[in-house]
């Protein structure tokens, strides 16, 4: 019970900060728009080619702005040494991880949800009619790279090349999640039954479980003073 109220306090703090500044969500959103713009020029919207590669483009967009949000999450904590303050409070390290994980998930999912109609609008690929099946994949894929990403972002913020360090560490690690999420999305867009992509779904779930549990357990070693 105590953990739950601590968690909600931590989450509330992140949401309040975001509501005040709106920095993270807006910058992610703008970036996502820019990526779509670049894709349009690179692949020409409405072409048959873009229909084929749209699942991959969608997840590339998510990975790109996801890293921006993840980078921001601990940079903000570092700026006023506020992480120090949180660590001094009598809160379990793993609860701090969970709070950060949930706030990152919330912000990134929000931007992903706004990106879907934009993607449909700009690249003329109908994602919205598959939304019911796409949402679980969106959630599972995001949990995958955000669980490791939250952990790595806490590490990257203390290195000399903080912004570049996070994608360098995160992208290779999250390849399995990326491949699986892309494959699931592609099967859904082609109206395939769930059996045809269930093994990809299993990989995605396995990735989420393995890295969420590991990051949750190992986080205390990252913030330890």
């Amino acid at each position: 019970m105590r953990h739950l109220s601590q968690l909600s306090a931590l989450l509330r703090k992140d949401i309040l900060i975001e509501l005040k500044s709106r920095e993270t969500v807006i910058s992610m959103l703008l970036f996502s728009l820019l990526v779509l713009l670049v894709f349009n020029f690179a692949f020409e919207a409405d072409s048959a080619a873009i229909k084929k590669i749209s699942p991959g483009l969608l997840w590339i967009t998510f990975l790109f702005f996801g890293v921006l949000g993840l980078n921001r999450s601990f940079t903000l904590e570092k700026e006023n040494d506020s992480l120090q303050g949180t660590l001094l409070a009598p809160v379990d390290r793993s609860v701090i991880y969970l709070g950060k994980f949930l706030s990152n998930l919330l912000f990134i999912l929000l931007v992903e949800l706004i990106t879907l109609p934009l993607f449909t609008l700009f690249l003329n690929v109908d994602l919205l009619s598959h939304i019911g099946k796409l949402l679980p994949i969106l959630l599972l894929g995001s949990i995958g790279f955000i669980s490791v990403g939250t952990l790595f972002s806490a590490m990257a913020v203390n290195t000399k090349m903080r912004e570049i360090m996070l994608p360098l560490l995160l992208y290779p690690i999250s390849t399995p999640a990326f491949i699986a999420a892309t494959k699931c999305t592609s099967a859904i867009l082609r109206d395939r039954p769930i059996e045809s992509y269930s093994n990809w779904l299993n990989i995605l779930i396995l990735f989420d479980v393995v890295f969420f549990v590991t990051s949750f357990l190992i986080f205390e070693f990252v913030v330890e003073e």
Binding site: N158, T214, S215
Partner: peptide, 9 residues
């Protein structure tokens, strides 16, 4: 500590 974490993951 960081590199140990990365080594495990």
């Amino acid at each position: 500590r960081y590199s140990a974490v990365l080594g495990i993951i």
